[in-house]
Computed example of a mutant assay.
Amino acid sequence: MSEQLQAMPTDWQRALAIVAHPDDLEYGAAAAVAAWGDEGKEVSYLLVTRGEAGIDSLEPVEAAPLREQEQRAGAAVVGVTTVEFLDHRDGVIEYGPALRRDLAGAIRRHRPELVVTMNHHDTWGDTTWNTSDHRAVGRAALDAAADAGNRWIFPELADDGLLPWDGVRWVAVAASPLPTHAVDVTGALDRAVRSLLEHRTYIAALTDEDPESYCRAFAEQAAVEAGARFGGRPAVTFELFPR
């Protein structure tokens, strides 16, 4: 039997979720966001792109506003009202100082104790190659959690009023192939399904299945599989990096 997962820390109040694309959080992590909201915690979303290159049948100029609208609607279902976009180009996000600076600035602005991001590993745990955008943003988020607290890295941020914030205590990586912790999402699965379902334009381009059946099957199967390592409770997993 695989090693059982630990419960995620609960002694925090503010989280910032940093991902590459609209829908990244809805594919799993949104259930945990809903559960955290039930506990009175505050979660904000930061999207590095608007997902404009994600739908083959739509030109990027058409896709971007649709995907932004769907992201805001999906976030609202799980109680998130703050959704920001950085406008890096979808599909060609570059890991490096510019991205780290943008993320460090956001962390300084939101002052979270927990940063959530997406799988930064090369694969999803098998031979399925992860996208370059996920890898770049995940790695940059891990680095930016430290950058945000160092006044000598990106000192220009302070000139803009973004003073150092060294209060990030953990970075939690969703959809990691090496999870260490989990969140019980027993009471949040229906909202997670509805949150993913808000991405109708993207899902319609992705599958011929009935959208609601597709979203429910994905969310419930993922939660049950994770729960096998979490006392049988429906769960969302994270690889947790303490700081």
Results as ranks from 00 to 15, higher is better:
residue 4 Q to K: 03
residue 5 L to Y: 12
residue 7 A to C: 13
residue 8 M to D: 11
residue 9 P to E: 04
residue 11 D to I: 06
residue 16 L to E: 02
residue 18 I to F: 03
residue 20 A to R: 05
residue 21 H to F: 06
residue 23 D to L: 07
residue 28 G to V: 10
residue 28 G to T: 09
residue 31 A to Y: 00
residue 33 V to R: 04
residue 34 A to M: 01
residue 34 A to H: 10
residue 36 W to S: 02
residue 37 G to C: 06
residue 37 G to S: 07
residue 40 G to W: 11
residue 43 V to M: 00
residue 50 R to M: 10
residue 51 G to N: 04
residue 51 G to T: 01
residue 51 G to L: 01
residue 52 E to Y: 01
residue 53 A to G: 07
residue 53 A to S: 05
residue 54 G to Y: 01
residue 54 G to K: 04
residue 55 I to F: 03
residue 55 I to N: 02
residue 56 D to Y: 08
residue 57 S to A: 15
residue 57 S to G: 01
residue 60 P to H: 07
residue 61 V to Y: 11
residue 63 A to H: 02
residue 65 P to Y: 02
residue 65 P to I: 03
residue 68 E to K: 14
residue 69 Q to K: 14
residue 71 Q to M: 15
residue 71 Q to C: 15
residue 73 A to N: 11
residue 73 A to L: 12
residue 75 A to M: 08
residue 77 V to P: 07
residue 81 T to N: 13
residue 84 E to Q: 11
residue 84 E to N: 06
residue 85 F to A: 08
residue 86 L to G: 12
residue 87 D to M: 06
residue 88 H to E: 14
residue 89 R to C: 06
residue 95 Y to V: 05
residue 96 G to R: 09
residue 96 G to Y: 13
residue 97 P to R: 02
residue 102 D to W: 01
residue 104 A to K: 14
residue 106 A to R: 13
residue 106 A to S: 15
residue 112 P to K: 04
residue 114 L to R: 14
residue 116 V to T: 05
residue 119 N to R: 09
residue 120 H to K: 09
residue 123 T to M: 05
residue 123 T to E: 01
residue 123 T to D: 01
residue 125 G to K: 05
residue 128 T to P: 02
residue 131 T to G: 10
residue 132 S to N: 00
residue 133 D to F: 02
residue 135 R to T: 07
residue 135 R to H: 04
residue 137 V to Q: 09
residue 142 L to R: 13
residue 144 A to T: 15
residue 144 A to E: 10
residue 149 G to R: 10
residue 155 P to M: 05
residue 156 E to W: 05
residue 156 E to K: 06
residue 156 E to D: 15
residue 157 L to R: 05
residue 158 A to L: 00
residue 158 A to K: 08
residue 161 G to F: 04
residue 167 G to S: 12
residue 167 G to H: 13
residue 168 V to I: 10
residue 168 V to G: 10
residue 169 R to W: 06
residue 170 W to C: 11
residue 174 A to V: 11
residue 175 A to D: 09
residue 177 P to W: 08
residue 181 H to F: 04
residue 181 H to W: 07
residue 182 A to I: 07
residue 183 V to C: 05
residue 187 G to P: 01
residue 188 A to H: 03
residue 190 D to S: 12
residue 192 A to N: 03
residue 193 V to S: 07
residue 193 V to M: 08
residue 194 R to W: 00
residue 196 L to M: 15
residue 197 L to M: 02
residue 197 L to T: 00
residue 206 L to C: 06
residue 206 L to V: 03
residue 207 T to D: 12
residue 209 E to M: 11
residue 214 Y to D: 09
residue 214 Y to F: 15
residue 216 R to I: 00
residue 220 E to M: 01
residue 220 E to F: 08
residue 223 A to S: 00
residue 223 A to Q: 01
residue 224 V to S: 01
residue 229 R to A: 13
residue 232 G to D: 00
residue 235 A to G: 03
residue 236 V to Q: 10
residue 237 T to Q: 15
residue 239 E to R: 13
residue 240 L to Q: 07
residue 241 F to P: 06
residue 243 R to N: 14
